[in-house]
Measured scan of single mutants.
Amino acid sequence: TEEFVRLWREAVRHNQTLHWNGTDFIPGDEWAEEFARREEEKL
């Protein structure tokens, strides 16, 4: 979602874990980066 992408970019900028829907998205984590890339492509 647009909100997820916005929060993810913020988390990456501050190198912080994003807690989203009970899942931890960690900047630099391969799975999280791939998920975020797919979400961005949907926008």
Rank of each mutant, 00 (worst) to 15 (best):
K42W: 09
L43C: 13
T1G: 14
E34M: 09
T1Y: 11
N15M: 08
A11E: 02
N15G: 14
R38G: 09
E3N: 09
A11N: 01
H19K: 09
E3T: 11
G28E: 02
L7H: 07
V12E: 04
E39R: 05
V12A: 04
R13Y: 12
E34W: 10
W8E: 02
E30V: 14
R6V: 08
T23V: 15
T1R: 15
A11M: 02
W20A: 02
R13M: 14
A36S: 04
E10A: 05
F4R: 00
T17P: 13
W20E: 01
W20D: 01
Q16P: 01
W31N: 06
H14S: 13
E2V: 13
A32R: 02
A36P: 01
E41V: 11
T1K: 07
R9K: 14
E10K: 06
A32Y: 03
E33Q: 10
L18H: 01
F4T: 00
T23M: 15
F25S: 01
D29M: 08
T17N: 05
G22H: 07
F35V: 08
T1C: 15
L18P: 00
R13I: 13
N15F: 07
E2Y: 13
R38W: 06
E33M: 09
G22N: 11
T23I: 15
E41Y: 10
D29T: 11
A11W: 05
H14A: 14
W31G: 05
A36V: 11
E10N: 07
G22V: 02
R37M: 09
T17Y: 05
A11V: 02
E33P: 01
W8A: 00
V12K: 15
W31A: 09
T23Q: 15
E39H: 10
P27T: 02
D24P: 07
H14T: 15
R9F: 12
V5Q: 04
A36I: 06
W31S: 06
E3A: 10
G28S: 03
E2P: 10
I26S: 10
V12T: 08
F35H: 09
L43E: 05
A11G: 01
R38N: 10
F35R: 04
E34A: 14
V5T: 06
E41N: 11
Q16I: 14
Q16N: 09
E10W: 11
R37C: 12
E2Q: 13
D24N: 11
P27L: 03
Q16K: 15
V12S: 07
P27Q: 03
L18F: 08
A32G: 04
D24T: 12
A32T: 03
A11Y: 05
V12L: 09
L43V: 08
E33W: 04
F4V: 00
E3Y: 07
A32L: 04
Q16D: 06
L7G: 04
R6Y: 10
H19A: 05
E2F: 10
E30L: 14
L18I: 05
E10S: 03
I26T: 15
R6T: 08
H19S: 11
W31M: 09
E40F: 14
W8T: 00
L43N: 05
E33H: 10
V12P: 00
F35G: 00
R38L: 11
D24L: 14
E41K: 12
V12F: 04
V5N: 05
N21L: 14
R6H: 10
E41C: 09
T23K: 15
L7C: 14
E33L: 07
W8I: 00
E10V: 04
E10C: 10
E2R: 14
V12W: 05
E2S: 13
F4W: 08
W8V: 01
Q16A: 12
R6C: 15
L18Q: 00
E34L: 09
I26K: 14
D29W: 04
E3L: 12
W20V: 04
T17S: 08
E2L: 14
R13G: 07
R38C: 09
E39T: 15
I26P: 05
Q16L: 13
H19Q: 09
E40R: 06
G28M: 02
W8K: 00
A36N: 02
E40V: 13
A36K: 02
D24I: 14
N15K: 11
T17M: 10
L18K: 00
T17C: 05
L43F: 10
V5D: 05
A36T: 03
A32K: 01
R37K: 12
T23N: 12
N21Y: 13
G22F: 05
E30R: 13
E30D: 13
N15S: 09
W31C: 07
W20F: 11
W8F: 02
H14I: 12
R37I: 06
N21S: 08
T1W: 14
E39L: 15
E40K: 07
G28W: 03
G28P: 03
E39N: 06
E40I: 15
T23C: 15
N21P: 01
R6G: 05
D24W: 13
W20T: 01
N21K: 14
A11K: 01
T23F: 15
Q16R: 14
R9I: 12
R37A: 11
T1D: 11
W31L: 06
T23E: 11
F25T: 01
T17D: 02
L43R: 06
T17G: 05
E33T: 07
R6I: 08
T23A: 12
E39M: 15
L7T: 03
W31K: 09
A11P: 01
E10I: 08
E33C: 09
L18S: 00
R6S: 08
L18T: 01
P27A: 03
K42S: 08
V12N: 05
G28Y: 02
L18W: 01
W8S: 00
T17V: 15
D24M: 11
R37F: 06
K42G: 06
W31I: 07
E30M: 12
A11C: 13
T17H: 07
R6E: 11
F35Y: 15
N21H: 14
G22C: 04
F25A: 01
E34I: 08
E39A: 15
G22W: 04
N15I: 03
A36R: 01
N15C: 09
E3G: 07
V5I: 15
L43G: 04
A11L: 02
